[in-house]
Design a protein around this nucleic acid. Structure first.
Length: 280
DNA sequence: AAACAAACCTGTGCGC
DNA sequence: TGCGCACAGGTTTGTT
C-alpha cells in the first residue's frame, strides 16, 4: 500500500504530533510485528525514550531516540500509524501501542491487518548487521535528491526491464507499483524496455516524471484507494488517486491520447497498467 | 544476472 | 443474500 508519498505524509504527521515527546509505556499485542527482535526488546528500547526526530528513507520511517538508539517502522502492505486520544477504543489489528507523555494524553498506534509491517528499535552504529536492507538502500529521490545524470547512470549500470529496476529499492528507494506505472506513463516509456536502451531524451522525461509524480502525490497527501487502507496519522485519506492516469484504470480511455484504452497485465505477479499508444 | 513464482497474512470485491 | 475465489500499495527467498 504505502509508497514514498504516503510514507512521507505519515512522516510529516508524526513530526508534528510525536517529535519531541517521551514514550512512557509500550504495549505489544501480536509479536509478529516485532519479529525482527522481540516484544521485550521493543518495550525495553522505547520505554522512557524521547523521539527526537522523524525521518524517512524510501518507505522506511526512522525515528532517532535520545537513548542513541533508533526506532524503525515499516508499513509494508497494510500498516497504518494513528495518533489518538489515550483510552480511545482501538481498531482491530492494533499490534503496538506507544503511550506519549504530555498533554493531551495520546497514544501512537501501529495497526496492521496483514502483519507484513514491522516495528523495531536498533542501534544505528550497527546498521549493517541489524537492518542490512536499509544499509544497502538506493537513493531516495526526495530525501537525498536525484539528478537526471545520476539517474541516467543507474539505468546504464545494468540491463533490466525498466519497471523492475524502478521498483528495486536498492537502486531507487521509495517508488512502488502505483507511482512506477504513473511515472512510466507520464514519460511515455513502456514497462518492459531494457533499462540500458532507454534513450537520453527518454531518460530526461522519465526522471522529470518520477520527480513530478512523487512531488504532486506528496502535495495531495498520497493515494487512498477504495479500500481506504492508507490514511495519515489523523485518519484522513489522500486524494492523489483522483489524478491517477493509468493505475486502476484498466479498460478506460487514456486521458492523454484520448484514443487507446488502458491495458492491465500481470508482470512478475504485479498488476501493470499502461497505454499501448502513448508508451513505447 | 535477470526474471519469475511463491511466501508471508487478512480483508474486500467480484462473479455465480 | 451467500459462497468461493482472485487479488491487493511490499519485500524476501528460492528456482529457473
Amino acid at each position: 500500500m504505502p509508497e514514498l508519498p504516503e510514507v512521507e505524509t505519515v512522516r510529516r504527521g508524526l513530526q508534528a504530533q510525536v517529535q519531541g515527546r517521551r514514550i512512557t509505556a509500550v504495549e505489544v499485542g501480536r509479536e509478529r510485528t516485532v519479529r525482527r527482535t522481540s516484544r521485550q526488546a521493543l518495550i525495553d528500547g522505547l520505554t522512557g525514550a524521547t523521539i527526537t526526530a522523524v525521518n524517512r528513507r524510501g518507505k522506511y520511517l526512522l525515528c532517532p531516540l535520545d537513548t542513541g538508539d533508533e526506532l524503525m517502522m515499516h508499513l509494508r502492505m497494510s500498516g497504518r500509524l494513528l495518533v489518538a486520544a489515550a483510552g480511545t477504543e482501538r481498531p482491530p489489528h492494533t499490534h503496538v501501542v506507544m503511550h506519549l507523555a504530555g498533554e493531551p494524553a495520546q497514544e501512537l498506534w501501529f495497526v496492521d491487518p496483514r502483519t507484513f509491517g514491522e516495528v523495531v528499535v536498533f542501534d544505528p552504529a550497527n546498521l549493517a548487521n541489524e537492518l542490512p536492507e536499509l544499509a544497502k538502500m538506493g537513493v531516495d529521490p526526495i530525501t537525498d535528491g536525484l539528478t537526471r545524470d545520476q539517474f541516467a547512470r543507474l539505468l546504464r549500470t545494468r540491463s533490466r526491464q525498466i519497471k523492475a529496476l524502478l521498483l528495486d529499492q536498492h537502486v531507487v528507494a521509495g517508488i512502488g507499483n502505483i507511482y512506477c506505472d504513473e511515472a512510466l506513463h507520464l514519460a511515455g516509456v513502456r514497462w518492459d524496455r531494457p533499462s540500458d536502451k532507454v534513450t537520453p531524451r527518454e531518460i530526461t522525461r522519465l526522471h522529470a516524471a518520477i520527480m513530478q509524480v512523487l512531488h504532486d502525490a506528496i502535495e495531495a497527501g498520497g493515494s487512498t484507494l477504495a479500500d481506504t487502507q492508507y490514511v495519515g496519522v489523523d485518519g484522513e485519506g489522500g486524494w492523489f488517486q483522483l489524478h491517477h492516469r493509468v493505475y486502476d484504470r484498466a479498460g478506460q480511455r487514456c486521458l492523454t491520447c484520448n484514443r487507446a484504452n488502458i491495458v492491465k497485465a500481470a508482470v512478475a505477479g504485479r498488476g501493470t497498467h499502461w497505454c499501448p499508444r502513448c508508451q513505447r
